[in-house]
Design a protein around this nucleic acid. Structure first.
Lengths: 140, 140
DNA sequence: CCTTGACATGGAGTAAACTCCAGGGTATAT
DNA sequence: ATATACCCTGGAGTTTACTCCATGTCAAGG
């Protein structure tokens, strides 16, 4: 598979694909005798994997480390397991934080709904501020 | 409250606090007669709100727009509601994506557990690749 | 063989989001 | 009054993660 095909398939520019390879975010891609990249299914899987993990917010640094461990062979299984476990923990933390922010957004939206559909729409004037509930010192 | 106190309380550098104010991510902060920032509880709430929303991945652009709407007064309630609803939708999408990546990480971790504790630890040698399951074209 | 379009490399340029700095004002303890 | 610590602004610098570019190579059609 050429770099252009991979680019289309995963919606990542050729420049970015080369960049990812250069910094070690994906292992070196297979080449033709002429030196042109010819992505194997394995190469593609790395591209997809990195895209997925980056999308979830894993750092490039952690992923480079993981790729490096895989390239060092089977002796690094334990280290890989630890790395992935730590990244899983961090990901779960981020999700929890986002869930709580989502709940907060929901409360704020509910308040705007009340204000917009309440008895006297457009006639309110409490300073809204950061919380649609500016009166009680703390919200979420 | 001085900028240094707010900085400590929310773990945001004074430079970043000034930057946030400059770009409109928080409304103008109250000043002393001498021109020095003196954060009111309301100002602090904005700082906390922005920190929370930024932490969940809302764009600076969307937050600036929200702050701007709030400053424009009560006529913008409907627009604020729409903005928040859209941001909520995007946030939920991101969470869903991260949940699925979390599940994928879990599967991969489970596979490493098997390999590390299985019958012949350290004696495997299937090329691992991006999936700890390099044999079946697709994983997750 | 030659043209044409995609690909290669190394390095420079860019956008976002800070972060740092110089030069100068403010405030409080001595 | 003055030293010291903190704050101000405008602007330059930094980091991250790309993105673009100049120059040269590769490969398929005519």
């Amino acid at each position: 598979m050429t770099i252009a095909e991979v680019s289309r398939q995963y919606d990542i520019s050729p420049d970015t694909l080369r960049y990812y390879e250069r910094i070690g975010l994906i292992p070196p891609v297979h080449r033709t005798s002429g030196g042109i990249r010819d992505y194997t299914p394995e190469d593609c899987k790395w591209v997809e994997f990195c895209k997925c993990m980056r999308g979830a917010g894993l750092t490039i640094e952690a992923l480079i480390e993981y790729v490096s461990l895989v390239q060092q062979g089977d002796g690094t299984m334990q280290a890989r397991l630890e790395l992935l476990t730590e990244q899983r923990r961090l990901l779960k933390e981020r999700i929890a934080e986002m869930e709580s922010t989502l709940a907060r957004l929901d409360r704020k939206i509910a308040m705007y709904h009340e204000k917009c559909t309440g008895p006297c729409c457009d006639a309110f004037s409490q300073s809204d501020g950061a919380g649609a509930s500016a009166q009680n010192g703390q919200n979420a």
